[in-house]
């Protein structure tokens, strides 16, 4: 005889979504639209997203830019290292992590990745990214300016050209790496700052271009 619920008992419980869509914070972005404009100048541009894949972003970039999109979720790599207590090894890890060829990418989305990286790892990654950009390419990043403990990652979901929906997920706590503007510029050697805006949230949005 059939036993109602017998299969359910075999199935491990599924955790509900960590953050329902209704709790997403919506923030205005000043620089992101400039990034889109810069990348949009290229025919069939190639985009590199260093955050977790977001379905709606994929659709957005495809429709807006008609681009090819590479997704390399470095946040998950950072979290893996953090859980093992090996943040210091990230510099060595990033030296070989990304396999994209130099001069092959038109646009890079860093989001707030560098807030989670110690300086040596940040330097290695920034050098790799700068080398990947094609001439005329653009790199978008945001950098926190206040020292605090980061306890969550933020996934940016493009709501419009001038606004992002931010969805959080838990992170192994780490002190934010606060970089001075001149340090950021030095880090991305070979790129120029096309736009830099300090938002009310004390986050500095920066658009780099490869001349």
């Amino acid at each position: 005889m059939l036993k109602w619920g017998s299969r359910r008992a075999e199935t491990p419980p599924v955790a509900p979504p960590a953050t329902p869509g209704s709790t997403d914070a919506i923030v205005t972005t000043k620089v992101f639209s400039r990034f889109l404009a810069a990348v949009g100048h290229q025919p069939a541009p190639v985009l590199l997203d260093l955050g977790p894949v977001v379905g709606s972003n994929v659709s957005f970039f495809s429709e807006r830019l008609g681009c090819k999109l590479h997704v390399e979720d470095l946040y998950s790599d950072i979290e893996d290292h953090a859980r093992r207590g090996e943040r210091a090894a990230l510099a060595q890890f990033f030296a070989t992590r990304l396999t994209e060829s130099p001069d092959s990418i038109d646009g890079i989305l860093c989001w707030d990745l560098f807030d989670f990286l110690e300086r040596p790892a940040g330097l290695v990654l920034a050098a790799k990214l700068a080398a990947m950009l094609r001439k005329g390419g653009a790199l978008y990043g945001s950098f926190g300016t206040t020292a605090l403990e980061l306890t969550h990652y933020t996934k940016a979901i493009v709501a419009a050209e001038d606004s992002l929906r931010l969805r959080t997920s838990p992170a192994t706590p780490v002190a934010r790496t606060v970089l001075l503007t001149r340090d950021i510029i030095k880090m991305f050697d070979g790129l120029i700052v096309a736009e830099s805006v300090l938002l009310k949230s004390s986050t500095r949005e920066t658009l780099f271009r490869r001349p």
Partner: peptide, 18 residues
């Protein structure tokens, strides 16, 4: 057309050029 649900894992490139 590519649809990726929230929570899905993906690593690679996506080419949606018509």
């Amino acid at each position: 057309r590519v649809a990726i649900a929230d929570g899905a894992h993906f690593r690679g490139s996506i080419d949606m050029q018509r």
